[in-house]
Design a protein around this nucleic acid. Structure first.
Lengths: 198, 198
DNA sequence: CAATCTACTTACCAACTGGTAAGTTGTCAA
DNA sequence: TTGACAACTTACCAGTTGGTAAGTAGATTG
């Protein structure tokens, strides 16, 4: 067995929290997913909140690394921008659980805001805003405007990544698959169109 | 008292469900918000799921009406399109609870998909896709592509409407207010830029 | 004046919640 | 061989969950 019990707990918790949210999942349910008792879980994580925190960390780390790697090998700011947003879209549509969990964090933040608000989005957003302001013709934008522009792209990507079950249930799995197949391309066009209008 | 107890229950439940999600709210907590016991709530709604269902209904109705009204008094398809998306953005940023609840529905849908999937989004999305395909120069789009384009706009709007607590906690209330002030205008530009690129 | 209905209440319930305490079992180092 | 430690277990606990049953007070109606 290459993965530790700890890691297995985090993986199971990530999936369940993504599906039903923090309050919708009992620690007993997570433990049961591994065939263990909830006290085994408590042994490893202390309490439910800490488990949840580790789940969030397990998501933010890799994505941040990927983004940094992309920045390092892509010098041109406009290309950086496009590829960063598309990277985020791809990784979220590959890993539906992460996408959902992050969206839930966004919603729940009033309660957990102080701790959670910064963990994932803050550095990422600043990275993107900087890239946008470095693009030719974007110099006239204020930082607030740049954030609005960025956030619209991210929203377009994230919203779709999270909507799969709903859209598939409305239009059927086949129609959804078709829309998904062209979504990334349409997203690129959305970004480029907005950049050209600068 | 002009509002009935029933309506008061729905209003209280809408707020609480929006904040903490279905599983995060007990019927006792909803009842307590009116100074009543949970059995009073059960008397009116039978069970928790039915209460939740009525909350969803109380949101979908008005928005659908507003959209239809707009369509009736705006003949030109491109203008229809822009105004429909902006209408959705405005109503969601005015009523943060509704915006959150709808986003939660999107996330929770795997479980409640069959019943809930169609209640709000389906007619709205079809309305928008039809409007887009009627725009000059959009004839070459497939229905799936049109849905992708539409959904990106809606995502941009909805995502931001839901992110207020997180963004305010990351950048501070003042910076958030500035971004919010220009967001609608930026959204309009995003839509128009994409339409021009058709 | 009696009967019915609505809007609630108190009194329960079994199941589940997160969490503590106190073991038990196997591994590994001194 | 002993002793410590990690990884669990069973046995609890008090509080909360959604929900049922059986009322009660007040207004409406015959």
């Amino acid at each position: 067995m290459s993965t530790t019990t700890r890691e297995q707990f985090i993986a199971a918790a990530r999936h369940l929290f993504a599906e039903r949210g923090f309050y919708g999942v009992s620690i007993a349910a997570v433990a049961e997913a591994l065939g263990l008792t909830k006290q085994a879980l408590l042994h490893h994580f202390g309490n439910k909140e800490k488990l949840y925190g580790e789940v969030l960390q397990s998501i933010s780390g890799p994505l941040q690394e990927q983004a940094q790697g992309l920045l390092d090998r892509t010098p041109e700011p406009q290309q950086q921008l496009v590829e960063l947003v598309l990277l985020q879209y791809r990784s979220q549509s590959d890993d539906a659980d992460s996408a959902r969990l992050i969206m839930r964090e966004l919603l729940d933040n009033e309660q957990r805001a102080e701790k959670a608000g910064n963990w994932y989005l803050a550095p990422y957003l600043n990275m993107l805003v900087d890239a946008l302001l470095a693009v030719d013709g974007a110099a006239h934008l204020t930082r607030d405007q740049a954030l609005a522009v960025i956030y619209q792209w991210l929203g377009a990507a994230h919203y779709f990544a999270v909507s799969q079950p709903t859209l598939a249930s409305i239009f059927g799995a086949r129609a959804y698959a078709k829309t998904e197949a062209c979504f990334e391309d349409e997203l690129r066009q959305l970004i480029l169109a907005r950049l050209q209008a600068l």
